[in-house]
């Protein structure tokens, strides 16, 4: 049952990314490029996605547990650390460079062609080396 609902959730996510045009790298870069021919689509996608999610968080407050059992995700510490900011800078640069982020990268694998697989493979490699990168950085003397 959990897997079925995970598939449904993923399906809605994938369908939404497809019909919204978010797997089209030119629409993402067009939104980020305020000095070019600015494309407002991404703002509508983000805004539209936040409406059901806002309702979902309110509904979550009324429940003690998820419908399928288990526990709700704990509230993470509201601390802005170097990882959050530095990681987001790296992510944003890569996002601007290719016009792809993790969700659309997966959604477009079936029809995007070789370029999408190259990006996807590099992203997976990046995710795989991150624990080692973290260890290296932790060992390095703090200079900041």
């Amino acid at each position: 049952m959990r897997n079925l609902f995970a598939f449904i959730a993923g399906g809605l996510f994938g369908a939404g990314l497809f019909v919204s045009g978010m797997t089209d790298t030119s629409k993402v870069q067009g939104w980020l490029d305020v000095f070019g021919a600015w494309d407002p689509t991404l703002a509508f996608v983000m805004g539209g996605a936040m409406i059901p999610m806002f309702i979902a968080w309110r509904l979550r407050e009324r429940r003690s547990a998820p419908v399928l059992g288990g526990t709700f995700p704990p509230t993470p510490p509201q601390k802005l650390d170097r990882g959050l900011i530095g990681g987001s800078v790296m992510f944003g640069m890569g996002w601007g460079l290719a016009g792809l982020c993790p969700g659309p990268s997966v959604a477009s694998l079936s029809y995007g062609g070789t370029g999408h697989w190259v990006f996807f493979a590099a992203m997976i490699a990046g995710m795989a080396i991150t624990p080692n990168l973290r260890r290296l950085l932790d060992k390095a003397p703090a200079t900041a």
């Binding site: 959730a9 939404g16 497809f18 689509t41 996608v45 983000m46 539209g48 409406i51 999610m53 979550r60």
Partner: peptide, 20 residues
């Protein structure tokens, strides 16, 4: 974009409320 966004958000709502 708006329709797709609503679908994406609904997916997120299902994953949160059903699967936690």
């Amino acid at each position: 974009g708006l329709i797709g966004g609503l679908l994406i958000g609904t997916g997120g709502a299902v994953y949160l409320l059903a699967n936690g």
